[in-house]
């Protein structure tokens, strides 16, 4: 009997504070898998923005610097410029990155800062209690768009991956989802590409995770998965918008060995 799936070592053995069905935990796990895979625990610095992701330091066993709301990419710029050989990533939600932090992320991307942005897009402000986010879908009801987001008043969902990909400093930009195991596996491959981008010093890497916030969507976890499939993915098409790296990932053959590849 062989254990073929376990918690990654860098993921501390602590229960998450996240709500039932929230996808943050999967993003945390995938991050830790990659940190372990590349042996980065001892030279990684994480920079969580303000939002549900801020407690990253309670779960991931690496050095962490909290950033003011929206400023994670500026803080990461400072850390990375001082320690260019460290692995630096930010962890930001749609309010943090897509609203208050747009200036910082666009310019960090445009400078080609060699760090990785983990962008968790659940189309709502989670920690503050379900207000409308820049990525909220048209018609989506939130506590500040009670009749549904109306483009005439609130504009349109912001597409960060598409927005950043054309910038010359961006080496990798992709959007993935986490609502099925198959999507989680694709997300892992994309995250690996993002890690490789930084490790090969190719520039700015950006990975957007479409994820569920059942609590603030006022849906059950099951309904949330359906909502992602039917509505979120229509508004936010998945895919790799830019990848300046070699077409074949160095680690791709390992995929053959995964337990999941058996099926």
């Amino acid at each position: 009997m062989q254990k073929i799936f376990a918690r990654p070592a860098t993921l501390l053995d602590t229960g998450f504070h996240f709500c039932p069905g929230c996808h943050h935990g999967i993003v945390h796990r995938l991050l830790c898998e990659m940190l372990d895979h590349y042996g980065l625990r001892e030279r990684a610095v994480g920079v969580p923005g303000v939002g549900c992701g801020v407690f990253l330091y309670d779960y991931i066993d690496i050095d962490v610097c909290e950033a003011p709301h929206g400023r994670a990419t500026a803080v990461a710029t400072g850390i990375k410029r001082v320690q260019p050989d460290h692995f630096v990533f930010t962890y930001q939600g749609d309010g943090d990155l897509g609203a208050i932090g747009t200036a910082e992320v666009i310019h960090a991307a445009n400078r080609g800062e060699n760090f990785t942005v983990i962008f968790v897009n659940n189309a709502v402000y989670g920690m503050t209690g379900g207000q409308m986010a820049p990525t909220t879908l048209l018609g989506q009801c939130t506590t500040t768009s009670p009749a549904g987001r109306d483009s005439r008043n609130d504009g349109y969902p912001l597409h960060l991956a598409e927005l950043l990909a054309p910038l010359e400093g961006v080496a990798f930009a992709a959007r993935v989802s986490l609502h099925t195991p198959a999507h989680v596996k694709k997300a892992r491959r994309a995250l690996q590409r993002a890690f490789e981008t930084q490790l090969e010093k190719r520039g700015f890497s950006f990975l957007e995770f479409i994820s569920a916030c059942p609590t603030n969507w006022r849906l059950t976890p099951y309904q949330s998965v359906e909502h992602i499939e039917k509505n979120m993915l229509r508004a936010f098409p998945l895919g790799t918008y830019k990848d300046t790296g070699a077409p074949a990932s160095a680690a791709a053959p390992e995929e053959e060995d995964t337990a999941n590849a058996v099926l």
């Binding site: 062989q2 254990k3 073929i4």
Partner: peptide, 16 residues
């Protein structure tokens, strides 16, 4: 956690 009778090689990152 997942256990297999006839184990294939696990991913490095899964710390099996």
């Amino acid at each position: 956690e997942v256990f297999r009778e006839r184990g294939k090689v696990a991913l490095k990152w899964q710390n099996a």
